[in-house]
């Protein structure tokens, strides 16, 4: 399947990516290859196969409503590129 310029521009916008022209061409090719690969699956006849909503035959993995976590703020904030004493700091939103 051929990916159009518009499509790659749109996908990049949604993903908040700025692509150079060179990258754009590469991405178009990569995405086409991926879709091609997935297309191979369509060769299989699945008309008699029950659709599944998950790849594991497991359902109802649940937990009880019990608090198991405690304040771990300092650890949580370790990965933040910018932080205050108690919060993540991000570029200004409106």
């Amino acid at each position: 399947m051929q990916i159009s310029d518009d499509m790659i521009k749109y996908v990049a916008e949604l993903a908040k990516l700025e692509l150079s022209d060179e990258h754009k061409e590469q991405a178009k090719k990569d995405m086409s290859d991926m879709l091609e690969y997935v297309n191979t699956l369509n060769e299989l006849d699945t008309s008699n196969v029950e659709p599944m909503s998950h790849c594991f035959p497991v359902a109802n993995v649940l937990r009880d409503d019990v608090v198991t976590n405690s304040n771990d703020r300092d650890n949580m904030l370790l990965n933040a590129p910018d932080k205050s004493e108690d919060s993540y700091i991000v570029p200004k939103t409106f």
């Binding site: 976590n69 304040n71 771990d72 703020r73 949580m76 904030l77 108690d86 919060s87 993540y88």
Partner: peptide, 9 residues
């Protein structure tokens, strides 16, 4: 309470 005290991965 204080910000980010009830937060996990």
């Amino acid at each position: 309470g204080s910000p980010n005290i009830n937060v996990c991965p």
